[in-house]
Design a protein around this nucleic acid. Structure first.
Length: 341
DNA sequence: TACGCGTGGGA
DNA sequence: TTCCCAAGCGT
C-alpha cells in the first residue's frame, strides 16, 4: 500500500478542506440528517434544506413524533422522497429500540431504514468520531484514478475492489478516521473533480496511477444511461367556489410518494370520471411543462375546471398559495406561476 | 443484479 | 439542447 497516503491527505484536509459546512462540528443526529440529504444530492442544494429541517426537528424524539406530512413538507423540492419517509420511520425505531439516540455501531445503523453501508460508515466516523469507512461518489472517483479502477464502478467486481481499498487506506484511530473520511470527500469535491481536476494541487498526485499514465480523463469510466420513452401526463386542477384547489396525497412507494398535488393521470376523461363520476365538466387548458426525472421525461399538461366541492369525495381543498404540505417541485412551479393561457 | 426513485448544476 | 451525475438505498 501507498506510504503515508492517509497522513498526507489529512495534512491537506486540515489546511484546505471544508470545515464550515452547517452539519460539521455538530452531533451524530445532524450527521445522520445531512448524510441522508446528501445522497445523490449536491452540497449547495442541501444546505438550506438542512438548516430548515434541523431547526424544525432538532432531535430524534421530535422527528419521531412529527406527522409524516410535516417531514415531507420540509423535503419538498429535494427529491427522492423515500429518503424522508425512511428517515421518519428510522427515528421511530430509534425511539423504540435505541433509547432515543442513534446507535453507534455499524450493523445497528445499517438495520435502520434508509441507512446503507456508506451512510453508516459516515455516521460512525463523521458523527461519532470512531473508525468508519465511507464510499461515495467522491471516494469512488478518487480511488478509480489513484488505482486505475476501470469498468462500471457500480458493478460488484469494482465495488469489492473499492471497498477493500477504502478500508485499507482508512486509519485505525477514530479521530484520524474522521479526518480521513472528510478528506476523501473534500479531495474528490475540490481537487479530484469530475472535469478539470486540479492535479497540480493534489496532495497524493505522486501516488496517482492515472496521472502517471496521463490518463486522468479515462477514470472513472462513463456509464451509459438508457433512455426510457417519454410520457404524457395530464393534471386536472379542480377549483371550487371559494377558489380552493383539490389536493390529493400521492401513493407511496411511487413518484412523489407521500406528497400532495392536484390529480394527475394519463387521460383527462379518466381523471374526470374517477373524481366526479359521469358528470360532464368543462376544462380549460392552462399550459404545460416538461420535466426530467432520474429515469424518464414527462410532459405535464395542466387543465383547470370549476366544480362544486360537494361533488368530490376525496382529497382536501385549499388555496394553492396557502397549502402547507409537501408539493413536488414542478407541480409547485405550475401552480405558482402566472398563467399565460 | 438491475431498476425505481427527484432535482438542479455544470459542461 | 442534451447529457452526465451529485456525501445511495431498497427491492
Amino acid at each position: 500500500m501507498i506510504e503515508r497516503f492517509a497522513e498526507r491527505l489529512a495534512d491537506w484536509q486540515k489546511r484546505h478542506g471544508r470545515h464550515d459546512l452547517p452539519w460539521q462540528q455538530r452531533g451524530p443526529y445532524e450527521t445522520w440528517i445531512s448524510e441522508i440529504m446528501l445522497q445523490q444530492t449536491q452540497v449547495q442544494v442541501v444546505i438550506p434544506y438542512f438548516n430548515r429541517f434541523v431547526a424544525s426537528f432538532p432531535s430524534e424524539e421530535v422527528l419521531a413524533a412529527a406527522p409524516i406530512d410535516d417531514v415531507l413538507a420540509h423535503w419538498a423540492g429535494l427529491g427522492y422522497y423515500s429518503r424522508a419517509r425512511n428517515l421518519h420511520r428510522a427515528a421511530q425505531v430509534i425511539m423504540q429500540e435505541h433509547q432515543g439516540s442513534l446507535p453507534n455501531d455499524l450493523e445497528a445503523l445499517i438495520a435502520l431504514p434508509g441507512i446503507g453501508r456508506s451512510t453508516a460508515g459516515a455516521i460512525v466516523s463523521l458523527g461519532f468520531g470512531a473508525r468508519g469507512v465511507i464510499q461515495d461518489g467522491n471516494v469512488r472517483r478518487v480511488l478509480s484514478r489513484v488505482f486505475c479502477i476501470s469498468g462500471d464502478l457500480s458493478k460488484s467486481i469494482a465495488q469489492n475492489q473499492l471497498w477493500d481499498l477504502a478500508d485499507t487506506l482508512t486509519p485505525d484511530g477514530g479521530a484520524e478516521s474522521k479526518v480521513h473520511a472528510q478528506a476523501m470527500m473534500d479531495l474528490g469535491s475540490l481537487i479530484c473533480r469530475r472535469s478539470k481536476p486540479k492535479c497540480e494541487a493534489c496532495p497524493v498526485a505522486d501516488d496517482c496511477q492515472a496521472l502517471q499514465r496521463n490518463a486522468i480523463a479515462k477514470f472513472p469510466e462513463r456509464k451509459q444511461v438508457k433512455q426510457r420513452q417519454d410520457e404524457l401526463w395530464v393534471m386536472l386542477q379542480l377549483v371550487n367556489a371559494n377558489e380552493e384547489t383539490l389536493f390529493i396525497k400521492r401513493p407511496s412507494p411511487g413518484i412523489w410518494g407521500g406528497l400532495y398535488s392536484p390529480p394527475i393521470g394519463l387521460s383527462l376523461n379518466q381523471l374526470a370520471a374517477d373524481l366526479l363520476g359521469n358528470e360532464q365538466i368543462e376544462t380549460e387548458y392552462a399550459g404545460a411543462i416538461n420535466h426530467t426525472f432520474s429515469h424518464f421525461r414527462v410532459r405535464i399538461e395542466h387543465y383547470v375546471a370549476s366544480v362544486n366541492a360537494a361533488d368530490v369525495r376525496v382529497g382536501e381543498w385549499c388555496r394553492t398559495e396557502r397549502f402547507q404540505k409537501g408539493v413536488p417541485a414542478p407541480i409547485q412551479h405550475i401552480l405558482s406561476r402566472e398563467e399565460i393561457k
